[in-house]
């Protein structure tokens, strides 16, 4: 139910020890792209010692391990599987890779959908055990397709949509790809709203200064909360499965959605 997922480099103490300051609902400690091959061991040991010493209730912590076909995968999991973390973010996800990971741990998994093949198989991926959310990795996905990334993001319209739809159908969260220009707040706002409007439930980011905007975009608005309150209240007062409110038909899925909105609002102090 997180609104924001912030990647932070796994071998940088100044970022690690401030991970709860950035107000991201979830933190993804990265062992993959932001850690050089020479320092993979260093990052594992740093994070192990850090998480043994400090624990966090207000933020969900995930680790992005290296992909299942890399030489670092096994050791990444081995060193971290007993730590107090929510789960793993798995890059270059495939059904097989998730099965591999599930053999090693029972923790939650967020696969990154970052290839055309993974997108084709997204429903199978969503059905795998321990998968709790789907994360779109648009940079690698468009690179593989050989197309350009743009602010308008028309090129990932289908990918965003299918991920949002699949996640929704299987009751998972869907996490949008990061907006890579960390200086451009207006661009981020547009990009996040585009994702929201396609049904994605949250967005990842690569810089702490992006978190505020993402949280605002993916939080239920005041009017949404108000309406949800009225729906839930009326549903409790009536024993009918469906009823009408302001001329609109309210049935079970709508009530469930309203409850979710309220849950989210409560969690994020709105």
């Amino acid at each position: 139910m997180s609104r924001s997922y912030l990647f932070i480099p796994g071998n940088t103490p100044s970022m690690i020890q401030n991970l709860d300051v950035f107000e991201s609902d979830a933190i993804i400690i990265d062992f993959e792209d932001s850690v050089s091959s020479f320092d993979k061991d260093s990052a594992r040991i740093l994070i192990k010692n850090f998480l043994k010493k400090y624990s966090y209730n207000e933020v969900e912590i995930y680790i992005r391990i290296n992909s299942a076909d890399s030489m670092y995968f096994l050791e990444d999991v081995k060193v971290t599987k007993d730590l107090d973390i929510f789960g793993y973010v798995l890059p270059k996800a495939s059904v097989e890779a998730i099965k591999e990971l599930n053999k090693l741990t029972d923790k939650a998994i967020i696969p990154i959908i970052e290839s055309p093949m993974a997108l084709l198989k997204v429903e199978d991926i969503a059905k795998e055990k321990n998968v709790v959310a789907l994360l779109l990795g648009a940079e690698d996905y468009t690179k593989e397709l050989g197309i350009k990334r743009t602010l308008e993001a028309v090129e990932i319209l289908y990918a965003r949509s299918i991920i949002a739809i699949t996640a929704n159908a299987y009751n998972l969260d869907s996490i949008d790809t990061p907006y890579t220009n960390k200086e451009d707040e207006e661009g981020l706002l547009i990009d996040a709203n585009n994702a929201l409007n396609l049904g994605l439930t949250s967005k990842s980011s690569i810089h702490p200064n992006q978190v505020d905007i993402i949280n605002q975009v993916f939080a239920p608005s005041e009017s949404e909360i108000l309406e949800a309150k009225r729906i839930v209240k009326k549903s409790e007062e009536t024993d009918k499965g469906a009823f009408s409110l302001d001329g609109k038909m309210i049935d079970l899925p709508v009530i469930e959605k309203a409850k979710k909105v309220l849950e989210k609002a409560k969690k994020y102090n709105l």
Partner: peptide, 17 residues
């Protein structure tokens, strides 16, 4: 200005290496 966990980690990594 490293905190204790970092000093411990860097030492362990160097030893492991």
């Amino acid at each position: 200005g490293a905190l204790d966990y970092t000093i411990k980690s860097r030492l362990e990594t160097a030893l492991k290496r």
